[in-house]
Nucleic acid binder design. Structure first.
Length: 809
DNA sequence: TTAAGGACC
């Protein structure tokens, strides 16, 4: 079998990028693999107490001071011609709707609220830069804006720009493939966010400030948002907050972003993979000839909280400097002098805005800390005894395990505490925590009670806890790392970066001066990396590359990466895409690949979905149910104790299927969907995560809709409520179209060996097939802990695997 | 006999 596989791959080595490595590439490619972290030892030697340090170092705050550092054109163009008052002009020539002095809807309360908010807005540090920012963007298409937390940039910048002359839609004629069409280009501003909650809450805030209804609430609404499962816009939307993923999705359908006059890319310093892709596409757009936009320029504002704008400046300069695709490495090496040479130095401006942040005292540990849970415990009680109320404590830990360990310890110590002291309320916070428990963190502490929030790095960026004046930072975080060579994902506890440490510390100074205890030495701090490793260097790139190919980027090597992933990682991803026939042998995207790119799934799961479509509508519906489970967090609750495990087994007995985990998931979705009385109670009875099942139902609905639009499913098939008998054979064969290389066969000694690569794997204990001996198995992921485990396992037949491996074109 | 930081289409 392995020989056969090799031949199949060898046929595809026309791909220029792959030619050198194909022979040496191992062929196993499990989609996601994880590594367990070492268990924390609770009985380690006592750590020294950092707070015993005599002189805590004070880091000066940067409150209320505004600094500008701008590379500017010397003359300002027609600066006074614009006002920044609310526009009531009918701006859209195509629009038949009246201007927004609508008599049917009474917007007076909204306007009054907006008027009241204006006072607050004027006090934001960014506000006095409004004219400067407008002036710069009239001249130049690209602006880099550094604004610290609390500067107000995310809410104000779009409002500064929306009434600019260049932000109106322009009638154009666009010629493509010999055909000329008339089209309006521009009119809207998009602001991207890394997270859905941020996009929605910013949109809500800006709508309030502008005195307009939000999104789809009124056809006259000027402010909307768009995130997965929730889009709220109107025909009048001019400012749209959206996630980076959503913008990338829009670009698949409209590569030139013709709806938009400007794209504001916010929170770039977080460096998720989607922001890197977005910036690459945007650089191509602003530095290209803009034929696709009828010559109308696109303004790009890149906003970041960290001052390291140099690499970003270089990144965009390179685009203007040389239109040729081949370029030298972009990162780091460009000298100042090189920038001066640039033919058009005025193309990019840089603007810095100081944030509004109270002073936060930093206190380092005098000696390295071995057990940060124990060290945190001591400091919590020291703060509690010494510091006045109010003033909640936020502790940054690495994961659920450390959070729960410390929770237990703090509660234990608090029981023996001097009763004259205020009470302590310990609140854990991590993403997997049920929603209701998460909400408790945001409620103010009861009287005479200090909140102690024990959090993962969810509180570093995603969530703001009010009332915090003391931060304890363990200096570590779990980081996902994709290991190209092994083809597996591992989750490792690693030191955080300086910018993450600064971010954590800043959480103490949102409302009042505060202090930050770092459970590491100052020397350790100075040795930290400056910034977080961009996600593009840490993850499987197949989905990113497929998106690029679908956008017409055939030459991956020539793509402007802000940080270029190693060649090996790109090759691995290309190989993966070739394996599932998402690419032609010449590296161009195939019809299959184009289709997969539009699905909100990993390429592998997308391939499975298409394969199921070829097996008929019943099979497709079943596979959608299973894929929906696979693309969310674990639907079965963890069973830690032996008792719980037995209870879970009993409760779930009617869901388990001997064919394996895939059919078990199908049954679970079917039973859950058929439960109309009380799904939550049903989930609890079966030890199934209700929250996960709600996401499953969202994904399922979205996939069903997309399949109907793609004509893979008819309304008739979707509306048919009578349940068919699932065909395990067709379902599992569909999965093999994506997971043919994730298979193993039973060998005489009773263990399993992977069919590609001949590695030993065992069925994971969480699988319904755990301990079973079967001819062959297929699995969704491969995890390496103390040994190799296959997770998401079903029984398959050897001849199906052979067919799937041979069946590649 | 295991165990997942966080986000996203």
């Amino acid at each position: 079998m392995p020989e056969k596989v090799r031949t199949v791959f060898a046929e595809s080595d026309d791909e220029r990028i792959l030619k050198q490595t194909l022979s040496s590439q191992p062929t196993e490619g499990p989609e996601r693999k994880k590594k367990r972290n070492k268990k924390r030892k609770l009985d380690e030697p006592e750590a020294s107490n950092p707070a015993d340090q005599d002189e805590p170092r004070e880091i000066p705050a940067s409150a209320k001071e505004v600094e500008r550092s701008v590379s500017v054109p010397k003359k300002w163009p027609h600066a006074a011609s614009q006002t920044n008052g609310p526009s009531t002009t009918k701006f859209h020539p195509k629009s038949k709707s009246k201007p927004f002095t609508d008599t049917k809807t009474n917007f007076t309360p909204l306007r009054e609220k907006a008027k009241a908010l204006l006072e607050t807005r004027r006090k934001l540090p960014v506000f006095e830069n409004a004219d400067l920012i407008r002036d710069l963007l009239r001249e130049q298409d690209v602006m880099l804006l550094v604004g610290e937390t609390g500067s107000g940039k995310s809410t104000q910048i779009p409002q500064f720009l929306v009434d600019e002359f260049w932000c109106r839609p322009v009638p154009t004629q666009i010629t493509r493939d010999g055909k000329t069409e008339k089209k309006m280009v521009g009119g809207c501003i998009a602001i991207t966010q890394p997270r859905r909650v941020a996009a929605i809450s910013l949109a809500r805030r800006v709508a309030e400030e502008m005195g307009t209804p939000l999104g789809s609430h009124s056809p006259a609404s000027k402010v909307g948002y768009s995130v997965r499962f929730d889009t709220s816009t109107s025909p009048s939307t001019r400012i749209k907050f959206l996630t980076e993923g959503m913008l990338l999705q829009e670009m698949l359908h409209d590569p030139n972003l013709t709806k938009y006059s400007a794209i504001v890319v916010d929170e770039v310093h977080e460096r998720g993979i989607n922001v890197d892709l977005t910036l690459g596409f945007l650089r191509n757009l602003v530095s290209g000839k803009k034929e696709g936009r009828g010559g109308v320029p696109l303004k790009v504002v890149v906003m970041s909280a960290t001052a390291d704008m140099e690499s970003l400046t270089d990144f965009f300069q390179q685009g203007f400097k040389r239109p040729e695709p081949e370029q030298k490495a972009i990162e780091g090496v460009e000298a100042e002098a090189d920038k001066m040479d640039t033919s058009s130095p005025k193309d990019i401006s840089v603007c810095r805005i100081k944030g509004r942040q109270f002073a936060v005292k930093t206190i380092y540990s005098p000696a390295p800390v071995h057990d940060f849970v124990d060290a945190a415990l001591k400091i919590i009680f020291q703060i509690h005894q010494k510091e006045p109320m109010p003033g909640d404590i936020l502790v940054f830990l690495t994961g659920q395990e450390t959070v729960e360990a410390l929770e237990h310890l703090v509660n234990e110590y608090a029981m023996g505490m001097d009763p004259s002291l205020p009470k302590i309320l310990v609140l854990p916070l991590f993403a997997a925590l049920p929603q209701a428990a998460q909400q408790r963190v945001f409620a103010p502490a009861p009287p005479r009670t200090r909140k102690v929030v024990l959090s993962t790095n969810i509180a570093e960026t995603s969530v703001t806890v009010s009332g915090v004046r003391h931060v304890i930072d363990c200096g570590k975080a779990k980081v996902k790392q994709f290991r190209t060579r092994l083809g597996l994902d591992s989750l490792l506890v690693k030191p955080i970066s300086k910018s993450a440490a600064i971010q954590r510390k800043g959480r103490a100074g949102r409302e009042a001066p505060g202090q930050c205890f770092r459970l590491y030495t100052e020397k350790d701090y100075l040795a930290l990396d400056e910034t977080n490793t961009p996600e593009i260097l840490r993850c499987d790139l197949s989905q990113a590359l497929l998106n690029m190919k679908a956008r017409g980027v055939d030459d991956i090597v020539g793509f402007p990466f802000l940080t270029r992933p190693p060649r090996e990682a790109l090759e691995k991803a290309l190989l993966q895409l070739l394996n599932i026939n998402a690419l032609e042998d010449d590296g161009k995207i195939s019809a299959v690949g184009l289709h997969i790119a539009k699905l909100p799934l990993t390429p592998t799961l997308g391939r499975v979905l298409l394969a199921a479509g070829e097996n008929g509508p019943e099979c497709l519906l079943d596979v959608i149910d299973i894929i929906s489970c696979l693309s969310v967090e674990n639907i079965f609750l963890n069973t830690t104790s032996e008792e719980k495990k037995e209870a879970a087994e009993a409760a779930r007995r009617d869901l388990y299927r001997r064919e394996g985990d895939h059919l078990t998931m199908l049954t679970t979705v079917r039973v859950y969907a058929a439960e109309h009385a009380d799904r939550k109670a049903w989930a609890e009875r079966h030890l199934v995560s209700h929250r996960a099942m709600q996401s499953v139902m969202d994904v399922r609905k979205q996939l069903r809709t997309q399949c109907r639009q793609a004509k893979l499913l008819t309304n008739e098939a979707l509306n048919n409520t009578s349940l068919h008998d699932p065909s395990p054979i067709l379902i599992l064969q569909s999965f093999l179209a994506g997971f043919a290389t994730n298979t193993a066969r039973l060998v005489p000694d009773g263990s399993y060996r992977t069919i590609v690569g001949n590695q030993t794997v065992a069925i994971h204990p969480s699988s319904v097939l755990y301990g079973k001996k079967l001819e062959a198995i297929m699995y969704n992921e491969f995890v390496f802990t103390n040994r190799s485990y296959a997770r998401g396992v079903s029984a398959v037949q050897m001849d199906w695997v052979g067919e799937a491996l041979a069946g590649k074109d």
